[in-house]
Nucleic acid binder design. Structure first.
Length: 206
DNA sequence: GACAAGATTAGCT
DNA sequence: GCTAATCTTGTCT
């Protein structure tokens, strides 16, 4: 499959554009022992100081510091005492915006993903959630603030873009900003989060 | 099968 | 005390 590494300048675009552009792209992780690869099928945009659900809404802290860097690095945070979520920082330095990777479709290294997640079955539950994806890719604090154009985690786009419809809904699991249509996913993809809420599709983008 | 509710976890919304 | 989540268990159609 012909792929091209995503350039830094793409990450500098506005966050909603990046959230949509990342759909269908491949995210890879290289370790000494294996390579993991998966197709991004679901994202959410978090928009700096305009968005009350965003970690960077109030002020810069030690935790959200990576969000205020230049676009194109990772922001990994710890939630609910147990889990990690992986974000791609977007826009210019000081903006505090990012795209949360909510779900992926495994392509390469499925056996290792299953082992990382301690999950015996290779069905959609392997990676259909933000923390499931992090477990499958063995993403933790050590993967915070990586440069996604040169470090062990990278994102590639395909030379020939897949044909799919983007569905837009409100975001999942937040209180403030819940009405904002910032969740994007590939329509009818089996690996998109199965969630009882946020089912209503606001619009579709071809 | 779909949906709801409770337990779990630790850093800070 | 609350949370950008998941797993397990229970209830319902």
């Amino acid at each position: 499959m012909d792929t091209i590494l995503l350039e830094k300048k793409l990450y500098m675009k506005d966050t909603i554009t990046v959230a949509q552009k990342l759909l269908g792209c491949l995210i890879t992780k290289e370790t000494p022992n294996y390579t993991l690869s998966a197709r991004i099928v679901e994202t959410e945009a978090y928009l700096g100081n305009n968005d009350p659900a965003c970690h960077a809404y109030r002020k810069l802290t030690d935790r959200n510091r990576p969000m205020f860097e230049y676009g194109g690095i990772s922001y990994v945070y710890f939630v609910y005492g147990n889990y990690f979520c992986f974000n791609v920082v977007t826009e210019n330095k000081g903006t505090g915006s990012a795209v949360l990777i909510r779900a992926v479709e495994p392509i390469e290294g499925i056996h290792e993903m299953r082992k990382n997640r301690n999950y015996p079955i290779g069905d959609v539950n392997l990676t259909n959630g933000p923390a499931k994806f992090c477990m499958a890719f063995d993403i933790g604090r050590k993967d915070n603030s990586l440069d996604l154009t040169e470090d062990r985690i990278k994102i590639f786009r395909k030379k020939r873009r897949d044909s799919f419809t983007i569905a837009v809904t409100t975001r999942i699991g937040i209180k403030e900003g819940a009405e904002l249509p910032y969740r994007f996913f590939i329509k009818d993809n089996a690996y998109v989060t199965k969630h009882r809420l946020n089912k209503e599709i606001i619009k579709e983008i071809k």
